[in-house]
């Protein structure tokens, strides 16, 4: 099957999934007890205000019309208006997205860079101290709630040792600012921006990345152990390949192919983890926005956030599948 057809089919499935997400999200506020607009309002509001708000939001219209309006608005990015700021909900979500992406990408990079070598070392030094260390680390890492880990890191590295800040990240530090400096050829500013960026992102990235580091370490170790026992590894050694090639070119390749799909499924966990990590570090991202919006009952923003996360999940999974097809010749065939 050609890649184009594959992508087309997966995209259609993806659109279906997104439609499902939208529908569930739209339905959520109707499963709340009481009138839907109650969710959007503080409990002690007067009946007149209630009706006014309901009319303003189109809540007095029949359900199918509201649903239809919502759906047709989506493709043009209309996801309703934030009840708190009275600005478009999608705009609020998108403005917090970069901070969350920075965090998620930093954590993923940390996880991959540490976990894959660690898993390989653990598998190739089986039953040696390094292996026990790595196994213990992955057990504890998988079992540790990241919000608690974040607090522990703050207590140790910010409060006690003072290496990292315990204050929230000021506005103006971020990849976008660094890139802007680079484009303007302000190298010094870019360098100091990078330093600040690292200063603020290190602990959150470790907090979010630990679970994934532990998970990938474990998957890599188990996969490598399995692959290294395969006949083709023995054959590769028999033909004289050095151990580096045997491990990293042959065994690791086959180990990573299934890991890629697992990671695709774990994206939801990554986003959930980001939400809570942001809460711990008061990181100005999507997670903080979602929680604040739920507490403020700013339902349109919550809806928009969930839908945008869902879209991201679907798109990334299609990409992961495409990558999987690309590096696994046996799938590409049929």
């Amino acid at each position: 099957m050609s890649l184009a057809r594959f992508l087309l089919r997966r995209s259609l499935q993806g659109i279906f999934v997104i439609w499902g997400v939208v529908t569930v999200v739209f339905g959520l506020r109707f499963i709340a007890p009481g009138a839907p607009e109650n969710v959007l309002l503080p409990p002690d509001v007067s009946e007149a205000t209630r009706q006014q708000v309901a009319a303003e939001l189109g809540l007095d219209q029949p359900l199918y019309l509201q649903y239809f309006d919502y759906i047709v608005g989506l493709p043009v990015g209309d996801m309703g208006t934030s009840l708190v700021t009275r600005t478009p909900a999608s705009g609020r979500v998108l403005s917090t997205l970069p901070a969350t992406l920075e965090l998620a990408i930093a954590a993923t990079v940390v996880a991959i860079v540490i976990a894959i070598p660690l898993g390989v070392i653990s598998a190739t030094r089986r039953h040696k101290p390094a292996d026990y260390g790595a196994t213990l680390f992955s057990l504890v890492g998988i079992s540790t709630p990241n919000f608690w880990l974040g607090i522990m890191l703050v207590i140790i590295f910010s409060v006690q040792i003072g290496w990292f800040p315990s204050s929230r990240r000021p506005v103006g530090i971020g990849i976008d600012a660094i890139l802007a400096d680079l484009v303007a050829l302000q190298l010094e500013a870019a360098a100091s921006g990078l330093r600040d960026w690292l200063y603020y992102i290190t602990l959150p990235a470790i907090t979010l990345g630990t679970y994934f580091t532990a998970l990938i370490t474990r998957l890599t170790r188990n996969g490598m152990l399995e692959e290294l026992g395969e006949e083709y590894v023995r054959a590769a050694r028999a033909k004289g390949l050095p151990e580096t090639l045997v491990r990293y070119k042959h065994a690791l390749r086959n180990t990573l192919i299934p890991i890629i799909t697992v990671l695709g499924l774990q994206l939801g966990t990554l986003i959930g983890g980001a939400v809570i990590t942001e809460r711990v570090f008061r990181w100005p991202g999507l997670g903080t926005l979602i929680i604040n919006s739920i507490q403020a009952r700013d339902w349109p923003v919550v809806q928009a956030s969930i839908i945008i996360i869902g879209v991201g999940f679907v798109v990334l999974n299609i990409l992961v599948d495409a990558l999987y097809t690309y590096i696994n010749p046996q799938v590409g065939e049929n």
């Binding site: 709340a32 007890p33 959930g272 739920i294 919550v302």
Partner: peptide, 23 residues
């Protein structure tokens, strides 16, 4: 299977806080 695909597209923590937020 389609329903479970849709469920998987929700980060479980986000969905959970949204539901608790509503209820």
């Amino acid at each position: 299977m389609r329903a479970s695909d849709i469920m998987l597209a929700f980060p479980s923590l986000v969905l959970a806080i949204a539901l608790v937020g509503v209820w």
